[in-house]
Design a protein around this nucleic acid. Sequence first.
DNA 1: TATATATCGGACAATATTGTCTTAAATTGA
DNA 2: TCAATTTAAGACAATATTGTCCGATATATA
Lengths: 148, 148
Amino acid sequence: MILSKTCDYGLRAVLYVATCLDREYISIGEISEKLNISFHFLTKILQKLTDKNLLISFRGPKGGVKLTRPAGTITLLEIIQAIEGPDFFDKCLLGLEKCKDDNQCPLHQHWSPLRLQLKNLFQQNTLETMAEMLKTNQFRITDLTVRF
Amino acid sequence: MILSKTCDYGLRAVLYVATCLDREYISIGEISEKLNISFHFLTKILQKLTDKNLLISFRGPKGGVKLTRPAGTITLLEIIQAIEGPDFFDKCLLGLEKCKDDNQCPLHQHWSPLRLQLKNLFQQNTLETMAEMLKTNQFRITDLTVRF
DNA sequence: TATATATCGGACAATATTGTCTTAAATTGA
DNA sequence: TCAATTTAAGACAATATTGTCCGATATATA
Ligand code: FES
Ligand code: FES
């Protein structure tokens, strides 16, 4: 609905990695298997996040990806904007160009604050926050009935 | 971002029609021209809305489409759900299946209320409300520099 | 009745998104 | 050094979305 499948996969993968902070590099194979995401497709998505300096990758046995910075310093917004683009939360609900207060569509006054709330939500929640929740085993990050 | 292009087009077209309440049927050709939307593509979208009983269409000269009910009784939500599907506002932000309170992803508690706000927004605004705004000429419904 | 106009319906094409596969390069450990 | 493992990179395929076109049908008007 809101996010592309690519973005969903990327978020879920990064969240998974954030739950493994005791370990070193996490292999993409493991992530794709645990989250039931196509390995090659996920590889591309994570490469993008690596390019954007949100992940560090490492080849060979014991290789994989890890977070560039501590999970508490990476927001969901960073992940989303890395994948969907930096202006993702600036768009007109009706798809019109250059959504601005002085060039409004009839939905702007309603959409604009809601959009900001959404953006704030993603900005205020770090990977650590989410990982903490996941570790309680009361939340899911996959359709599979697996827990961490 | 949120809505598909199809839905954007549909909404904008229906809003345009709602601004023409003094007239009878509005031709799709006129709508597509004024809103700069592909005629044939728009035709299909409006056919869908006709099938869902939100529009009535009429063939031949003086033909076109008109609203089935008074603009004040049709909500934006109806249009959106007709195009995007009735469960559009029930989906998990991470794309997981069966988003429910007792089967949450870590974003659910934040996303669920926001999603509801969004849905309410669309439910509370009728085509009439929007059309009134458009008639003040202070709002736009197209990228073109046309006013109504 | 004839002509022009408009939607209807379906085929088809272009593009974007999503997913698959293969080869290369890096790294580990035997 | 050699084999196994893993990411990198790019080609390619499948699917979904978006957009185009054409003939059929309905209607108004002359
Ligand atoms: S102009 Fe449409 S949401 Fe801002
Ligand atoms: S389960 Fe993810 S938003 Fe409800």
